[in-house]
């Protein structure tokens, strides 16, 4: 009976971890292309989900609403590149980081101004109900989310490693000036990657919105993605998924088995502690790229 419970906690944690990975992926994409931690990722998740449910509320069918929102997110990505990033080419990463902080507040405000502040329910047609596998309850929705996350990671990993554009993205991330000097169109690359990050935000927004309702609190799901990034590495797409699995399983097992000894409620800080412990051994994260700078 107890091993069954252990298994349930473990499986539940792994599946929860995939949900964290979905958000972490958006960060990885931007970081890989620009070397910048995108503070606005949470706001993008909110913007995407809120746009989708609001368009749907106008009577637009699901798939058309999805396509319209995707178009909107790509437009937003291109707009961000044109208005926010392009003037900051070759500026230090901290400048770009500060710009994404401003962008985050702007997007949160814009989303609420355009679509309103109301909370919306979101049903994707997959019930968040359990099915019994030998006494272990597994959520159908979690399995669906895991499948979506896995597909996304596989597609992005292939994109970055096997396509010309993907290699160009990696070159840009390494050095803006060097990439430009060999003819890589930095501006186009950034627009594409922000567009793809918008798509990832839409997927994360739909899955998280379906679980929590589409509301401002969606911006908070990034808190779950941060330890995943620290552990998996900021530049690795597979790292985001492996990091998510470790963090998800780790925090659930810790809450259930260690929590009672320290009064419970450790789920928020334990993943950070776990990630920091990993950093002691691998400062660049599990799959992050090693940087050797000569001075």
């Amino acid at each position: 009976m107890e091993w069954q419970f252990f298994l349930e906690v473990l499986v539940g944690g792994l599946l929860a971890g995939v949900m964290y990975s979905l958000v972490a992926l958006g960060f990885v994409l931007i970081y890989k292309a620009s070397g910048v931690f995108n503070f606005a990722q949470g706001a993008m998740v909110l913007f995407a989900a809120l746009s989708f449910v609001s368009i749907q509320a106008m009577g637009v069918p699901f798939w058309i609403a999805l396509l319209l929102t995707l178009a909107l997110m790509v437009l937003l990505g291109v707009g961000i590149e044109r208005v926010v990033l392009r003037p900051l080419v070759n500026q230090p990463p901290i400048t770009l980081f500060m710009a994404t902080i401003g962008l985050s507040f702007f997007l949160e405000g814009l989303a609420q101004m355009v679509w309103g502040t109301d909370v919306h329910g979101l049903e994707l047609g997959i019930a968040d109900e359990p099915f019994d596998v030998g006494g272990v309850f597994i959520s159908k929705f979690d399995l669906f989310a895991a499948a979506v996350g896995g597909t996304l990671v596989a597609a992005l990993a292939l994109f970055f490693s096997k396509t010309k554009l993907g290699r160009a993205l990696r070159a840009v991330a390494d050095d803006h000036q060097a990439a430009m000097s060999v003819g890589i169109p930095l501006k186009h690359i950034w627009a594409i990657v922000w567009g793809v990050a918008g798509f990832v935000a839409l997927v994360a927004g739909l899955l998280w919105g379906s679980r929590l309702g589409v509301q401002f609190a969606l911006t908070l799901v990034v808190l779950k993605a941060l330890p995943v990034l620290i552990l998996g590495g900021f530049t690795s797409v597979p790292g985001a998924i492996i990091g998510g699995l470790i963090i998800g399983a780790g925090e659930k097992l810790a809450e259930v088995y260690l929590g009672p000894f320290v009064g419970g409620g450790i789920e928020n800080w334990f993943p950070y502690m776990l990630a920091l412990l990993f950093l002691l051994v691998r400062p660049e994260g599990l799959f992050g790229e090693k940087h050797i700078e000569r001075v």
Partner: peptide, 9 residues
């Protein structure tokens, strides 16, 4: 733990 977005455990 606040804000309570994840309550599986």
């Amino acid at each position: 733990p606040a804000p309570g977005t994840e309550q599986q455990s």
